[in-house]
Amino acid sequence: MSRSSAAPSGRNGLQSRDQLLDVAEQLMGEKGYAGTPVSAICKAAGVAPTSLYWHFGSKEGLLASVMERGAARWFAALPRWSELTGDHQQRAATVQRLGAAAVGEHPLFLRLFYLLALEAGADEVAGDFVRRVRERAKNYFSEGIAGLLGDLAAPEIACDAAVELARFAVAFSDGCFFASQLEPDEVDLHQMYSDLLTALLALAPAALDRARKAKTVSAQESR
């Protein structure tokens, strides 16, 4: 049978693709990528295995599509510092509020992402995706933190300090998600992200000082 003759058509094709993505995200988020067989995904989605292979080519292709869709939704929910209005304090408050909301509204994607991170060493596809999303998250935090520090230092110094602080912010955000899953009735994500903002401002002077010293050393070594 040719690929074209096996293709799901029209609305049914789109529905089967969306069903596979939704079910795969749910099951892989519960059992991990390696622990979720294609047969279980197809059974839960109510489609034949041929439909999965038509849409995605392989289980790896399905995973890539699930994670690309999840990442697109996740990052779309996060406000960009450069697109916000108001002063630094107002922008920071918006980022804090919407960032906390995004964690609470995308549990399936985040759960699957962290499970993939644990499996990354044994699976090249999962490892590559985890690295790319992680780097994108660090860049996102770096952009916002650099904007937050804009009044405290020259742009180049602020950017260097922001890269350092972004690693802390990503790790803190990891903890926020795990806490929300482990103790859902006791965790206030909005308060936790407000605390993250407080922590970043408290850590900023030391990070800026290290950035200035590193810049001075680099300049001396280049002479």
Rank of each mutant, 00 (worst) to 15 (best):
R3G: 12
R3C: 08
R3E: 15
R3M: 11
A6G: 12
P8R: 14
G10N: 03
N12D: 12
G13Y: 12
S16L: 00
S16H: 05
D18C: 01
L20P: 07
L21C: 05
Q26E: 14
L27T: 00
M28W: 06
M28S: 04
P37A: 00
S39Y: 00
I41N: 04
C42Q: 06
A44P: 14
A44K: 11
G46W: 03
V47C: 07
V47F: 03
S51C: 09
S51L: 06
W54D: 03
F56H: 11
G61M: 04
L63P: 01
A64D: 09
S65C: 10
E68V: 14
R69C: 03
G70Y: 08
G70F: 02
R73P: 08
R73T: 13
R73Y: 04
R73L: 13
F75E: 04
F75R: 02
L78I: 11
L78H: 11
R80T: 12
R80Y: 12
R80K: 13
W81N: 02
W81Q: 02
S82F: 03
E83L: 13
E83M: 13
L84P: 07
L84M: 07
D87R: 13
Q89H: 09
Q90E: 15
Q90S: 13
A92F: 05
T94W: 03
L98Y: 04
G99V: 06
A101I: 02
E105T: 11
P107W: 07
L108G: 06
F109W: 10
R111I: 09
L112N: 09
L116V: 11
E119V: 07
E119T: 06
A120D: 10
A120Q: 08
G121M: 15
D123Y: 03
V125F: 05
G127M: 10
G127E: 06
F129A: 01
R132F: 00
R132P: 08
R132H: 05
V133P: 10
E135K: 09
N139Q: 15
E143C: 05
E143Q: 15
G144M: 01
I145A: 02
L148G: 08
G150H: 05
P155R: 07
E156P: 09
D160F: 01
D160M: 05
A162L: 00
L165M: 15
L165K: 00
R167N: 14
A169T: 10
A171E: 11
S173F: 02
F178T: 02
F178M: 03
F178G: 00
A179R: 07
A179G: 14
S180Y: 00
Q181G: 06
L182V: 10
E183M: 15
P184Y: 08
P184V: 05
V187N: 11
H190T: 06
Q191G: 11
M192L: 15
Y193S: 06
Y193E: 11
Y193D: 05
S194A: 13
L197H: 07
T198L: 08
L200F: 06
P205I: 13
A206G: 03
L208W: 05
L208D: 00
L208P: 07
L208Q: 00
D209C: 04
R210S: 13
A219R: 14
E221D: 07
S222V: 10
S222Y: 08
S222D: 14
